[in-house]
Structures are given as structure tokens and as C-alpha cells.
């Protein structure tokens, strides 16, 4: 697994995907590394999901599989369909068509296997942190000693120990974010759906959440992690799925995806600078330098980043 995959329907999938899918990205002809092909333990399989809200086609042939222990970074512009997809997996909304299975079962039958951390704070202001964990642990079947153990572990991991008895309404934004994540993880779900869990969070909160998510993935938990802060995905060693207009347009490891992208050469002449793709021929660079009328003061060669990747895919999809 973890090889680069152009988004496509799984072989033999009902409905398949539209014929134009897979033509959007600049990154094409990628070798299949879909977890489904490598015999890995598939936790989530979503096939050709479609959902329309009035005039808006929120999902338009969305396909994604997630293997056990895999962290998938689901990235895309606002409105790309990420949140709709997560809500569908959490059985909060139903697709107009398409199919989702979690451990081979319908999402409604698999609700205990899923933990969702919504994008917006969804907590009771008048309840304490501990009461939140007791409530959501309890409704997910945790009792007494097991519940206490999970609460204690998450309190340490997410640095909540000092604020367990405080009401959520008086907590700082970062503390609420950590509580929000704890609620999603309290019952040790097999599939964690984390929708921008660190949005607006301070570095301490960000690191605490990332550490706990990494730990859960190392134990075999699967994660779908949406974010606009792409370095988080590098830290999580996530494979990446890029969503665009309600579908996944590219899928693979960050490293493999970046291999396909050129870096950038920046040449500075006094107050002027010229940027060119690192994929350009060496001759072009030599020509540039030899024809320069001012002294070269700086040459920088920059490797492509995940931000570049995302921009590349998004731009190519706009064409």
C-alpha cells in the first residue's frame, strides 16, 4: 500500500466512476498501490458516492478506501465535499447513491466503530470535560473501569488533566479543541474521522492532537484527517487523498505524489529575480545566467512541498 494511486473505481465496483474521473490531475499514469489491491485489511470502502443539496452537487462520484492503521489526509478546498463525506461515513447523512462499508457493514450498523470530531466545536458549554467523556464513552458502551481507564489516558495524552472538572463554556479555544478530539476518541474507535481537528489551535494543542492520533494509528486505528495545514500530514505520515468538486482526484503517499512535481529554481540579480521550474533543461538555466546583465547574487533551489502539490492538482482541475 501507500503507493501513488490515481483516483478510480475499485475493480468490479458497482457503478464504477464517471469516465472523466482521473483526467483532472497533472499526475497521471500512476502505479496502483490501492490498499484493496495489496490484500490489506480494509476498514472503509466508499464507492461512487453522490449527494446533492439543492443546486449544489456536494459529492459527485467520491471514492476512497482506507486500510487498517492507515492515516489518510483528505485535503481540498472548502466545498470540495470533505465534510459531507465524513458525515456520510458517520451515518449522519445518507448518500443519494453509492455505497459505503465499514468493516464490510453498512455505516448505520457500524456506528460504534467510528469516532467523529466535527469541524465546529460541538460540546455542551455547561458540562465539564469529564462529564463529556463520561457521556460519550457511556453512549458508546464503555462502562466503569474501562471508561475510567480511557478517560485517564486521554486526559494525559491531550493534556486535559488540569481542566477535567471545568465547564467547557469557560475553556480556551485550544482546550475546547482538545476536549472535542477527546470526545471523538474516547471509545477507541476503529475509524477516526477528524475534520480539521486543529483549526485555529495553538501549537501545544496541535502537537497533543497529532501525538494522540499517531498513537492510535500505531495501534491499528484508521484515520481520515482533513486539514488545510499540510505539514500536519507529513508528521502523521499520512497517505493523501485530494478532493475536488465532490470527488477524489489524486491519491497516494506524499513522497510519491511529490516525485511527480518539479521543484523551483530562483535566481536573483540585484533587485530582480527570475523563477523557473526545476524540470526545465539545464540549458535554459545556463542561457539565463549567460545572458544576465547584472551580477547573480543568489540562487535557490526549492523542493516541491505538499502545498505545491495541492495547488498543482487544484489548478489542473480548473482547466
Amino acid at each position: 500500500m501507500n503507493e501513488l494511486v490515481e483516483a478510480a473505481a475499485p475493480p468490479g465496483a458497482n457503478g464504477g466512476v464517471p469516465s472523466d474521473q482521473g483526467t483532472h490531475a497533472t499526475l497521471t499514469a500512476m502505479d496502483y498501490g490501492d490498499p484493496r489491491e495489496s490484500g490489506d485489511d480494509i476498514v472503509l470502502a466508499a464507492v461512487d458516492l453522490r449527494k446533492r443539496y439543492g443546486d449544489v452537487q456536494a459529492l459527485d462520484g467520491f471514492c476512497l478506501t482506507v486500510a487498517a492503521g492507515e492515516v489518510v489526509g483528505l485535503v481540498g478546498h472548502n466545498g470540495a465535499g470533505k465534510t459531507t463525506f465524513l458525515e456520510m461515513v458517520a451515518s449522519l447523512i445518507r448518500p443519494d447513491s453509492g455505497r459505503i462499508t465499514i468493516d464490510g457493514a453498512d455505516p448505520m450498523q457500524s456506528r460504534g466503530l467510528v469516532g467523529i470530531c466535527p469541524q465546529h466545536i460541538a460540546l455542551y458549554p455547561s458540562a465539564t470535560v469529564r462529564e463529556h467523556l463520561q457521556l460519550f464513552g457511556g453512549v458508546n458502551g464503555l462502562r466503569r473501569r474501562a471508561l475510567r481507564r480511557e478517560i485517564d489516558e486521554l486526559a494525559v495524552g491531550l493534556r486535559l488533566t488540569e481542566i477535567m472538572a471545568r465547564r467547557v463554556g469557560v475553556l480556551s479555544g485550544g482546550q475546547q479543541r482538545r476536549t472535542q478530539a477527546a470526545v471523538a476518541l474516547i471509545h477507541r474507535p476503529r475509524l477516526m474521522l477528524l475534520d480539521e481537528p486543529t483549526a485555529g489551535a495553538d501549537p501545544e494543542t496541535r502537537q497533543a492532537v497529532l501525538d494522540v492520533v499517531k498513537g492510535r494509528a500505531a495501534e491499528g486505528g484508521s484515520v481520515i484527517y482533513t486539514t488545510h495545514y499540510l505539514p500536519e500530514l507529513t508528521e502523521l505520515q499520512a497517505t493523501i487523498a485530494v478532493a475536488r468538486r465532490g470527488r477524489v482526484i489524486a491519491r497516494g503517499t506524499g513522497a510519491k505524489l511529490l516525485e511527480q512535481l518539479p521543484g523551483q529554481v530562483r535566481v536573483r540579480f540585484g533587485n530582480d529575480e527570475v523563477r523557473m521550474s526545476a524540470m526545465d533543461t539545464t540549458g535554459a538555466l545556463v542561457t539565463l545566467l549567460s545572458s544576465a546583465t547584472a551580477a547573480v547574487t543568489e540562487i535557490e533551489i526549492r523542493k516541491p512541498s505538499l502545498d505545491d502539490l495541492y495547488r498543482s492538482l487544484a489548478v489542473s482541475d480548473d482547466r
Binding site: 451515518s91 449522519l92 456506528r111 466535527p118 466545536i121 460541538a122 460540546l123 455542551y124 453512549v139 471509545h187
Partner: peptide, 18 residues
């Protein structure tokens, strides 16, 4: 308003219980 009902709906508790 607090968006908590959806979190409860996503739990394994039967909806009649909720």
C-alpha cells in the same frame, strides 16, 4: 445550536435510547 445532537447520533447508542 451546540451541534451535539449529531455527535450523539453518530454514537453506537440506538436512536430510541437517545
Amino acid at each position: 445550536e451546540w451541534r451535539t445532537w449529531d455527535r450523539l447520533r453518530a454514537s453506537r447508542a440506538p436512536r430510541t435510547s437517545l
